[in-house]
Design a protein around this nucleic acid. Structure first.
Lengths: 139, 139
DNA sequence: TCAACTGTAACTGATATTATTACAGTATAA
DNA sequence: TTATACTGTAATAATATCAGTTACAGTTGA
């Protein structure tokens, strides 16, 4: 799994946790345990996806725009890490003379695509608010 | 996803396809489209797992020992690629003062572990024989 | 005893990942 | 209007992971 997905979820949950629902990249980065540039890159995607607002300049930062209860991890997964289940390396060769060698690639691809859809469906059942809820229970 | 998982599945399906259910690493490697050393490494794991027999020496190679209809992709996944869903990088810091920063790691870990189990369960429903069946339909 | 295998490790090159640094652009506030 | 505090983005470097290659000792069958 892509770690940008983790950073995106963490950032959104953190913003949802703050009363003002707003923070600059440096503050988010410290909470996430990474550097501000990386957070800004992730937040840039989230902004394009409409999940956060950006305010440049002094006193600026990122602000959550949507209700945490309606944003699911599937939304974020699709934005940040789609295709994580499918391996980058494929076996076989479509031009092989052997039925197995020539068709394995597409068959495995079908299997992985279904797995990917199942993962998305699982993430679809968990919202940012749910994650924050689980965290609060940890106290 | 780990590509050794793909190689393992491909190799087992290929062996199941052969009438004698046996082949040396070089032949398997050609069908898989990789090099023999890599195949041998994967097959070594499968042998330890009891899925194939090894015969060293001239005329040797790997032989399928189990019925392809009882070996599921979940068995192979557990052997070759367990934990693929969990990201290597974790956000947050257990020693953080913030509830979010300190607990995010374990909460996300729980989410990923459940996702992993779901993936295993999906793979559990597909056997080596099923994969071979799908390939034959491609003809 | 030769030839054909496996088992395993070392090494290389390619690719991916994370951190770091830098700087132009933008908004706020004094 | 000027200093300050931000974002956006790219370049670079450090590190880790991945796939291919080579090598060779050990094993077995002919």
């Amino acid at each position: 799994m892509n770690s940008e997905f983790t950073i995106a979820v963490h950032s959104l949950v953190y913003l949802a946790y703050l009363p003002e629902r707003m923070a600059p990249s440096e503050v988010i980065a410290e909470n996430v345990s990474t550097n501000p540039a990386r957070v800004r890159k992730v937040m840039s995607h989230l902004r394009k996806g409409g999940y956060v607002d950006t305010r440049e300049g002094a006193g600026g930062g990122y602000r959550l725009t949507l209700d945490p209860a309606v944003v699911s991890l599937a939304d974020i997964y699709r934005l940040m890490a789609q295709g994580s289940v499918i391996p980058s390396w494929c076996s076989g060769d479509p031009d092989s003379d052997c039925v197995v060698g020539s068709n394995m690639r597409s068959v495995m691809n079908g299997i992985f695509c279904t797995a990917e859809k199942q993962l998305e469906s699982y993430f679809g059942g968990i919202t940012v608010a749910d994650v924050l809820g689980r965290i609060k229970v940890c106290k």
